[in-house]
Simulated assay, not measured.
Amino acid sequence: MDSPFWGIIPGKASLPLGQITLPVQFDTAKHFCVDYVNFLIADFNMVYHAILGRQALAKFMAVLHYTYLVLKMPREQGVLSLRTNLDVGYNCEKKSFMLAKATDISICMQYFITTSQLISLEDLETPTMEAARASTKYKEVKEVALVPSDQSKTARIRAGLEPK
Rank of each mutant, 00 (worst) to 15 (best):
V141A: 06
V34P: 05
K142V: 13
F112L: 10
L118E: 09
L80Y: 04
A62W: 13
V63H: 15
A102W: 01
P4V: 01
F97P: 00
K101N: 09
E130F: 15
V141I: 15
T103E: 13
K59I: 00
Q19H: 13
D104P: 00
E122F: 08
A29V: 08
L71Q: 02
P74A: 11
T84D: 08
F39T: 02
L69I: 08
T103P: 00
I9C: 12
D2W: 02
A155P: 00
K139S: 15
G18M: 00
Y66Q: 13
V141P: 00
V34G: 01
K137H: 12
F5T: 10
T154C: 09
V37Q: 00
K30V: 00
L124Y: 08
A13V: 11
K137Y: 13
A159K: 11
I9Q: 07
T84L: 11
L71S: 05
Y66K: 06
N91L: 10
T126P: 02
I119P: 01
S120G: 04
P16M: 00
P163F: 10
H31N: 13
T128P: 09
S116Y: 14
S81C: 10
D35E: 05
M46C: 08
L86G: 07
P163N: 15
D2V: 04
S3G: 05
H31S: 12
M61T: 12
T128I: 07
S116P: 00
P23K: 05
E125W: 11
V24H: 02
K30A: 06
V79S: 11
M61Q: 15
A155E: 07
L15Y: 08
L146F: 06
D27L: 10
L121G: 10
E122I: 04
G53R: 04
N38R: 13
K137I: 15
L69V: 11
R158K: 14
Y90A: 14
Q117A: 02
S106G: 01
V47E: 15
Q110M: 11
M61S: 15
K101M: 09
Q110W: 07
R83V: 15
K59R: 05
I157V: 12
K59A: 05
S135P: 08
V79K: 05
I157L: 13
L161Y: 15
D2T: 03
M73V: 03
Y138A: 10
L146D: 13
P23V: 08
L118M: 12
S3F: 07
P163R: 11
N38A: 12
I51E: 06
F112P: 02
Y68L: 12
P4I: 00
V63K: 14
K72Q: 13
D35T: 03
T126V: 12
F60N: 08
D104A: 11
V24F: 04
L40H: 06
M73Y: 03
I119N: 06
Q117N: 12
T154A: 06
L118Q: 14
M109P: 07
K59V: 05
Y68I: 14
D43G: 07
K94A: 09
S120M: 01
L146C: 15
Y138S: 10
K95I: 01
S3N: 07
R133H: 10
L52C: 04
T28Y: 03
D2P: 08
E140I: 10
M73W: 03
L40F: 08
K94E: 02
V24P: 02
M61Y: 07
